[in-house]
Design a protein around this nucleic acid. Structure first.
Lengths: 119, 119
DNA sequence: TTTTATACCTAACTTTCTTATGTAAAAATT
DNA sequence: AATTTTTACATAAGAAAGTTAGGTATAAAA
């Protein structure tokens, strides 16, 4: 039986806010549980955001003015939708750029794109 | 005046061991201070490994049997050279593969390589 | 002679997760 | 109808892996 190879969780550290902001940038509005499922689905369960990590992060982003919430009743239950504020939209772009730049630097450092001698 | 844009340090978390193991794989043997300088030079100071992070990491890798040391006197000072053990060599490969896989997954998740419809 | 660079080290603290736990409604299963 | 699973929110203790700050001491440069 095949066990899905999740990444050692240290790698995820520092990327959670970026993932959340970027998902909201692309999807308009989402609620917490939806975010965990979307990430799980998109990555084939390789990346699984835990609720213990996500909810505090959402609250922090909201208190920093990056996100705003909208409570919607689904039957008797409340579902909290999050959307980016204007500040959140620019932060999302910055964070994604920073992460991409970091990953490019890392790939170079790991010598995965060796110079071919014509540079 | 231009300030060098270092990455927010959370991103580095979880990648330090991989960087160290990979540098030793490519360079045969290195000492701690040399590693900090090499990374700084290779990345244009975008990634700076602090000694407070590096030395404990080197000690941990050694106690886990990934690295072995060789003390060399330079004048009156000791310099500690680290080399990969056999175990360290396979760990280095695994760690690099994992990090590359993770970065590919992240790039996909961030929708930087959108499907073109022919997959 | 004084400062900077080299070269090692540890410890308190912070950040950011994981793990565990709690609540409760809706849906699916037996 | 009763039980389990899924949905959906939340918090808190603890672990992991860094940063910041400090210490020691030699060699080189100013």
């Amino acid at each position: 039986m095949y066990i899905c190879p999740m990444y050692s969780s240290e790698l995820l550290k520092g990327t959670l806010k970026t993932i959340v902001l970027n998902l909201l940038k692309d999807n308009g509005r989402m609620y917490g549980y939806e975010i965990t499922q979307r990430v799980k689905d998109l990555t084939g369960e390789k990346i699984q955001i835990t609720e213990g990590a996500l909810y505090p992060t959402l609250h922090a982003l909201e208190s920093q003015g990056e996100l705003q919430t909208e409570a919607v009743f689904i039957g008797k239950r409340v579902r909290k939708y999050y959307t980016l504020t204007e500040k959140g939209q620019s932060t999302a772009k910055e964070k994604v750029n920073e992460l991409v730049d970091f990953m490019n630097t890392m790939k170079f450092l790991l010598d995965l794109e060796p110079r071919t001698g014509n540079g």
